[in-house]
Design a binder for these strands. Structure first.
Length: 375
RNA sequence: GGAGAGGUAGCGAAGUGGCUAAACGCGGCUGACUGUAAAUCAGCUCCCUACGGGUUCGGCAGUUCGAAUCUGCCCCUCUCCA
């Protein structure tokens, strides 16, 4: 019996929002949770100690990228990903399914699997669902993902159906190939914007009995309403006693809307990417630290934030670091944005426990005055 | 004092008769970013009452239908020699 369980703690009385505990082989993760993304065995610019300080309880890494460099054999020889990167918290690996989407111009999908052209040197490489699972087993992540195709938006019904059916076959093949006892495996619901396909995909995956279920194929260019619909279509067929993971979503309003719909886990590159580009999420809205008005602003980024960056540094200093392209600026803003989202879900958990999640959500959205994009 | 090189938009730097309001880089300003090909990418950057007009390439005066580009004088900078 795998020591991987989800226990629901509290169900919000006015929404589908819920709190829970994920036991990841002895390491506890409170949900809802936001997972920072460390594609290449590092959350860019952050050391594992930084992740502890911002109270990150689980992070992501990536199968495709680690397979290319350094290769799973190296990671395995290092003693697994945790030892390799000196991070002892839970790690979830994405399967490479997102790269089927993001590297679409250079890849070819067949029933057997996907042929990629390495974005590093052009080398052809083939990845089957079984390969993806075996790589993830070698990498030694705590949670592996099924190999899927993240479908672009918009896509026709016909294409979406064919792709979703193939993703289901791939899910089964991956499940059959997976033998590692101390690693959980999640299935991924695809189906695009189509209700019947989402329903079918979710139901078929649930029959296969994965350790958790994720909703994929969102935040690929669709509008917010469509995204929320896709979540609704899928989530009602997912079991209460398994974690639900909304892949690749990290805008503030999207996280809140996801939680409201019963999502437990989120990951997103957004906070770290925009941080590296000088943008931050604050309690008074979004700001770009590179702007001239911050040149002599000696106040913290966000008075309401408890992160290392806000406690110790001024906007003027961060503006200076960005003008000079100093890595410390990127590190400090990454810390801030991640802490911002992690604190958001921490606060959301408290609100759920008190059955006031809806008020909490409305309050945040009104008070923070985020724009359409949600950050 | 002598010999040489040179002065182009905020800076650096192309251009040496019309296709040039002037390449390119930097800097500056805007915008984008959602399971990371992203410390990236896109746009703007002489002035204006802007799908048009006005002034530019050290200064002044010329040559020419037409000059940043050719001529003369002047001013300034740098290098080397005294």
């Amino acid at each position: 019996m795998k020591n991987f369980t989800y226990t629901k703690i509290h169900q919000d009385k006015n929404s589908k929002a819920r709190t829970g505990l994920l036991n990841v082989f002895g390491k506890i993760v409170k949900t809802p949770v936001f997972m920072p993304v460390g594609t290449r065995a590092t959350v860019k610019f952050l050391a594992p100690e930084d992740l502890k300080k911002i109270n990150a309880s689980i992070i992501l890494s990536n199968t495709y990228h680690l397979h290319l460099r350094p290769g799973e054999k190296i990671v395995k020889a290092a003693g697994g990903l945790h030892k390799f990167m000196n991070y002892d918290g839970p790690i979830l690996t994405d399967s490479g399914g997102f790269q089927v989407f993001s590297l679409a111009t250079t890849r070819k999908i067949k029933e057997e699997g996907v042929t990629f052209k390495s974005h590093l040197d052009g080398t052809k490489l083939f990845m089957s669902p079984e390969d993806s699972i075996h790589i993830q087993e070698d990498i030694g992540s705590d949670i592996a993902m099924s190999f899927d195709e993240c479908i672009p938006y918009p896509s026709t019904y016909e294409y979406t159906k064919d792709s979703t059916m193939r993703t289901l076959r791939w899910a089964k093949r991956g499940l059959d190939a997976h033998t590692k006892e101390d690693q959980a495996l999640f299935g991924i619901v695809q189906g695009g914007e189509f209700e019947d396909l989402r329903e079918y995909c979710a139901k078929e995956l649930v029959k296969m009995n994965f350790d958790g279920y994720s909703i994929g194929g969102t935040s690929v260019g669709e509008d917010k309403d469509t995204m929320y619909r896709m979540i609704d279509y899928a989530i009602k067929y997912l079991p209460e006693d398994k974690p639900r993971y909304l892949m690749g979503v990290g805008a503030i309003n999207d996280i809140l809307n996801g939680i409201e719909r019963g999502v437990d886990m989120f990951d997103c590159v957004l906070p770290t990417r925009i941080a590296r580009h000088g943008t931050l999420m604050t309690s008074s809205g979004r700001i770009n630290i590179k702007k001239n008005i911050y040149k002599d602003d000696f106040t913290p980024l966000d008075d309401n934030c408890d992160c290392e960056c806000c406690k110790n540094y001024t906007k003027a200093y961060l503006n200076h670091l960005f003008r000079n392209n100093e890595g410390l600026g990127m590190r400090l803003l990454s810390i801030h944005n991640l802490r911002f989202l992690i604190r958001l879900v921490e606060d959301a958990r408290k609100a759920i426990e008190q059955d006031r999640f809806i008020e909490f959500k409305e309050d945040i959205l009104n008070r923070y005055k985020f724009d359409e994009r949600g950050f």
